[in-house]
Design a protein around this nucleic acid. Structure first.
Lengths: 150, 150
DNA sequence: CTTAAATCATTCACAGTATAAACGATTAGA
DNA sequence: TCTAATCGTTTATACTGTGAATGATTTAAG
C-alpha cells in the first residue's frame, strides 16, 4: 500500500523554512555578486563592523569556519581595500583586522541590498503576517542562537 | 559618522529566514547521513514519489539542477536499489525512473527523519506561533512557488 | 636562562558539489 | 534520406571549504 502523507511533508515548517531560507540566501548571494563578494565576505565585514572583532582565530570561531578560510576571505577583502591587517604589538602572531572607511561604505551598501531583499519578502505578506513571522523567527533565532551569517 | 542600524539588520526577516533556513537544511542533511544520502537524493526520491516524474531531463528541470547531476544522483540511488531505470519504449533515448519498493521505504524513512526535525523546531514555539509561522511561510512558498528540495 | 610546548596565521593538498561542454545514440523534420 | 535536434552520459573544470604541515612567535617548565 502506498503511504498516505506524501503531500503533507511539503507543507511542513522545517521543509518550508529550509527551502525558503536557502532560496533567500541564494538571492542575497546573487545581489552581492555585483560587488564581487560572497555572503561570507559580508559576514566577515559584519563581524568587524559589530566591534566584536579581534584576531582571525576569534573571527573563525564566531563564524564557525576554518581559520584557513578566514585567511582567504581576508585576503580578498584586503585586496579590495575594505579591511586592514595590523599586527598586534602585544602579540605579534596575531593579526588584528579592522574596517577601512571604504569597508564601512561597502558594508553599508551590502546592508542596503539586504534591506531591498527584505522588502521584497515583506511585500508578499500582510503586516500581521509579517509581525507573526518576525516574532516566530525571533524566537527560533534566540533558541538556536546564531547572529552570524552562514 | 558611523551608520545607525548595525544591530537592526540581524533582526531582519530575510536574515533570520536565510540563516535559520540554512541551519535547518544542514540539520536535515546531517540526519540523512546515516542513510548515505544527501538532500538532493531525497529530492529526487520525492519527485518520483509524487508521480510528477518522467525522464531525467524533466526531473532536472523540476529540481532546477543540471542534467548531469541527475545522472550521478540516479546512479547512486540505483546502486542502492532504491530506483530503477527503464528505457522508454516509445523513445529509446529517454530513461524513465521509478521507485522500487525499497525506494519507497527509504523515502518513508527520510520523511520520518524530517518529521522528527520538524517536531524539534515546533517544540521551540507556542502553538499560535507555530500556526502563524506556518501560515506566513505557506504564503511565501506559494508566491515563490517551489515545492522542490534544494 | 634556555629549551620544549603551545598558539596564530598561512600555505598546501585534497575532498565534495555542481556546472558546462563534448560525445554517442536515437528521433524528428525537411 | 540526411540534417538537425534531443536525451543521457562522460569528462574537464570551477568553486567552496576543510585539515594537515610549516614558520614565526609566545608561554611555560625545568
Amino acid at each position: 500500500m502506498p503511504n498516505m502523507n506524501d503531500a503533507k511533508w511539503t507543507e511542513t515548517l522545517s521543509f518550508r523554512l529550509s527551502t525558503l531560507g536557502v532560496l533567500v540566501a541564494d538571492q542575497y548571494a546573487e545581489a552581492l555578486a555585483v560587488h564581487d563578494l560572497k555572503p561570507k565576505h559580508v559576514g566577515l565585514l559584519e563581524v568587524l563592523g559589530s566591534g566584536l572583532a579581534g584576531s582571525q582565530l576569534e573571527i573563525a570561531k564566531l563564524m564557525r569556519v576554518a581559520p584557513s578560510l578566514v585567511v582567504s576571505l581576508a585576503d580578498h577583502l584586503e585586496s579590495m581595500g575594505a579591511i586592514e591587517r595590523l599586527r598586534d604589538p602585544a602579540d605579534r602572531r596575531r593579526q588584528i583586522l579592522s574596517l577601512t572607511s571604504e569597508g564601512r561604505d561597502l558594508l553599508a551598501e551590502c546592508t542596503a541590498k539586504a534591506l531591498v531583499l527584505d522588502a521584497k519578502v515583506a511585500a508578499e505578506l500582510t503586516s500581521s503576517q509579517h509581525a507573526a513571522l518576525s516574532e516566530a523567527l525571533g524566537r527560533l533565532a534566540a533558541s538556536y542562537g546564531l547572529p552570524v551569517r552562514k
